Structures are given as C-alpha cells and as structure tokens.
Simulated assay, not measured.
Amino acid sequence: MTDAEWPVVRDAMRVPAWWEERGGQSESYCHRQLVDVVRYLVAGGIAWRAVPADFPARDRVCAFFRRWRGKGLVAEFHDRLRDRVREASGRGPEPTAGIIDAQSVEGAASVPVAGRGFDGGKKVNGRKRHIVVDTLGFLPAVMVTAASVIDREAGRMLLGRLRMRTQRWRISLAWADGGCAGRLVDLARDVLRIALTAIRRTDDATGFAVLPKGWPMERRFAWLMRSRRLARDCEIRTDTSDVMIRWSRSMVMSHRLARRAR
C-alpha cells in the first residue's frame, strides 16, 4: 500500500493489547508488512507458497491471516472502512436500503466436494457468492455457499446474518431478483420488517440486461473480478472465501479514503 493509505488502514485496525500495555506479547513484524502480503496475495491471485521472499515469513503471515479470520477482525476492519467511506460521501454510517444478488464462480480443484455444487441456471460447478450492497455499492453482508444453494434459501440466511452484524438496524428497503420471490418476501416483511421487492425480467428481454436497482450490484461484481484471487474460488473453507472478498473491498475503500485525504 502507499504511504498515504497506511494512516487510513492503521486507524481502522484494532489496536493490539500489548501496544496499550494490556498484556500479550509484541509481534515480530509490523502490521503494515503483514497487511501488504495479504493485499498482494488477493490482488495478484498467487498461492501462499509463491509469496516473494522479501515479505515476512509465510508461516507468520498465515498465522496473522488465520487469527484475523477466526476472531472476525477482517469483518470489523472492513465495516469501519465502509462506515468512513459512506460518511465521506455525505451518507450515514449505516445504510437504510440494500440490494441482494448472487454470483456463481468456478471452483478450483482445491475446493472440496462437500463445499461445492452445480448451478443449473448459470451452468457453473463451484461456489456462489451471496452479497448485500447498499445504494452506493458498498458491502454490508456477504455469504459464500455451494453453487447448488438456491437464492431464496440463501437470502433468508443472508438477511438474518445482516441483522446480527448491524449495530443499528436501519435497513427498511431491499431489492432482489426474481429468484428471491415468494416466502422470502413474506419473511422479510413479517419478521425483519423489511419491504423486499423482487425485480423480475420482462418476457421480451434477451441476453444480459441490467434490472432496475441492479446497477450497484453489477458494478460490485465487476469490482470483485479485478482481484485475481476472486476470479475463481480456490479456497478450501467458505469462510476463507468470505474473508478474501472483504480484503478485496477494503483495498478499494482505503484507496478511496486516501485519495480524498490528499
């Protein structure tokens, strides 16, 4: 990352306990070096064993990555950056509307059989990324499943996860494609108090067509494909795929905040 980005990233990270003399052992590498390795891996799409030798030792980077994944620190770091980007854009930190959609990607040979499936509609054998974005295209919630999971069932779990993660529940409007119509609309209205609208394609539509309220989502998927690690799913665990998506988005948001600061 650039020198202008590092203050933005550092302010969004949790302060280590040993830094504030609250116990614990100091780390042998600074966080900037460790974050640089993870960003390099996500952007370049390389394997862990292909990390250049001038970066910190691979076992230390893997330990840092697993610790942040297990303790939920990546999601916390991502959400802090998202709140600051929204405030810099003149919006409140918590969104009031969201758009739900899914993207099916091919699974590499490293993806186990138990964690992959076949999407009959997209003809993709791999995994599916279910995400919720706000009207600015930022990411409140994400969930990775096998590609065989239907959008309606995944949307129910995704909305429930979004409610648990949101500190101040303000989302009252949501849009989704026609695959989420039916019981999910009733569940969102009766249980979560969300006015969910299912947007369907017209009968005369042919080929690719952006549905109403769908452009922020299509733009989000295009941004994800800029990270080579996300061009296909090669992670063994689905929570690792979740973390890779959040790391990719944090790179874009930190760059945007650093550019605004300049």
Rank of each mutant, 00 (worst) to 15 (best):
I100N: 01
D101V: 02
D101M: 02
D101P: 01
D101Q: 07
A102G: 01
A102S: 13
Q103I: 12
Q103W: 08
Q103K: 12
S104I: 05
S104D: 07
V105A: 04
V105E: 01
E106V: 15
G107Y: 05
A108G: 12
A108I: 03
A109E: 15
A109Y: 10
A109I: 10
S110F: 11
S110C: 14
V111H: 01
P112S: 11
V113I: 14
A114W: 07
G120E: 12
G121W: 09
G121V: 07
V124M: 08
K128N: 09
K128C: 07
K128L: 08
H130L: 03
H130V: 00
H130I: 01
I131V: 15
I131R: 04
V132P: 02
V132A: 11
V133I: 10
V133S: 04
V133G: 05
V133Y: 00
D134Q: 02
D134M: 03
D134N: 04
L136Y: 11
L136H: 13
L136F: 12
G137A: 11
A141G: 02
A141V: 04
A141H: 03
M143V: 09
A146N: 07
A146Q: 09
A146E: 14
A147S: 04
A147T: 03
S148F: 07
V149S: 06
V149T: 08
E153W: 08
E153T: 13
G155R: 00
M157Y: 11
M157H: 15
L158V: 10
L158G: 06
L158P: 05
L159Q: 02
L159V: 12
G160T: 01
G160I: 00
R161D: 14
L162F: 07
L162Q: 02
R163L: 14
M164G: 13
M164H: 14
M164V: 13
T166L: 13
Q167N: 11
R168F: 15
W169C: 15
W169T: 12
I171H: 00
S172I: 13
S172T: 14
S172R: 15
L173D: 09
L173N: 06
A174L: 14
D177F: 09
G178Q: 12
G178D: 13
C180S: 14
C180H: 12
A181G: 09
A181C: 15
A181K: 11
A181Q: 10
R183M: 10
V185A: 08
V185I: 14
V185Q: 09
